[in-house]
Design a binder for these strands. Structure first.
Length: 275
DNA sequence: GCGGAATGTAGAT
DNA sequence: TCTACCTTCCGCT
């Protein structure tokens, strides 16, 4: 379930399990055998996340080497304590501890799993916009792009060069929370609107890391507060519009709409998100 | 068993 | 704007 919050959470979890320890690496499925062999037995120095990109650092000269992982649409990185179970399915990369206490992590279905140098890692980061989950993020860079763009704000929010880490759920939900029509051009956003969106993304995504799921519904609109039955979507959190096409809006009761935008299904409430 | 969908992106056209 | 790709799961036959 990979938007930026998943990756940052993963970086923290993997750092906790493997950071500072020698690690065994293999590719049971075989498609990353070469890369796994190169880091096998080396110490994992730390995990870093930028947007939806995960970097696992391994001890070595000149900044060491990095495994660069992008989960794509359906990649997963499952981890747990104890010795690794017998491999099931397509495991691109398996990490496990070399000694007790034992832990393991299995990567399946990633868009990207490759070995990079320090310089190459920086090149990946340099292509990304500010990440609301990073302390070094500069929202001014995003505003510079958005405020000059005729592209819709819904497409801009999905563009990782503009903002890194926002995906289809956060885009739909943050626009709903700010009553913004997703089809408005970036340059028609006001500075105040952008500042509010950014601040909200920082809060929502931090909460996403903490809870490991996306919750966006304000206290006054929760099922209890609104007297409606509790509902939790497959993605695990409570949301206003994401994947709720045809259902009544939690706030106004109008029907939530969907349409393809920027290669993904957009969801919005036509009444709450006008002009 | 098959088809489609899924929190994504790169590369071709 | 499109297509390909990575993998799993769910609903339909």
């Amino acid at each position: 379930m990979p938007e930026g919050h998943t990756i940052h959470r993963l970086a923290a979890d993997l750092d906790g399990r493997f950071g500072g320890r020698p690690v065994r690496a293999s590719s049971p499925q075989g498609r990353f055998s070469g890369g796994a062999a190169l880091v096998d037995g080396r110490t994992l120095t730390g995990a870093d996340a930028h947007g939806k990109h995960l970097f696992l650092g391994f001890e070595g000269p000149a900044g060491g080497d990095w495994i660069h992982v992008h989960l794509g649409l359906y990649g997963t990185f499952a981890h747990g304590d104890g010795p690794p179970p017998a491999p099931v399915g397509q495991i691109r990369l398996r990490l496990s501890t070399a000694e007790a206490p034992h832990a393991y992590a299995d990567l399946r279905g990633p868009n990207t799993c490759e070995l990079l140098t320090e310089r190459q890692k920086r090149a990946v980061s340099d292509r990304l916009g500010p990440d609301p989950l990073r302390a070094d993020a500069d929202p001014e860079r995003a505003w510079a792009r958005i405020s000059r763009s005729r592209t819709t704000v819904a497409a801009l929010l999905m563009d990782q060069k503009v903002v890194a880490g926002v995906g289809n759920v956060y885009r739909a939900e943050v626009l709903f929370r700010h009553h913004i029509d997703p089809y408005r051009a970036g340059r028609d956003l006001t500075r105040a609107e952008w500042d509010a969106i950014w601040t909200d993304l920082v809060g929502l995504m931090r909460e996403g890391v903490r809870l490991n799921r996306i919750d966006t519904v304000r206290p006054e609109h929760t099922p209890e507060a609104m007297g409606r039955p509790p509902r939790v979507d497959d993605h695990g959190g409570e949301v206003y519009v994401y994947r709720r096409a045809g259902l009544p809006c939690h706030v106004c009761g109008d029907e939530v709409r969907t349409a393809p935008l920027a290669a993904r299904n957009l969801f919005w409430c036509p009444t709450c998100q006008k002009g």
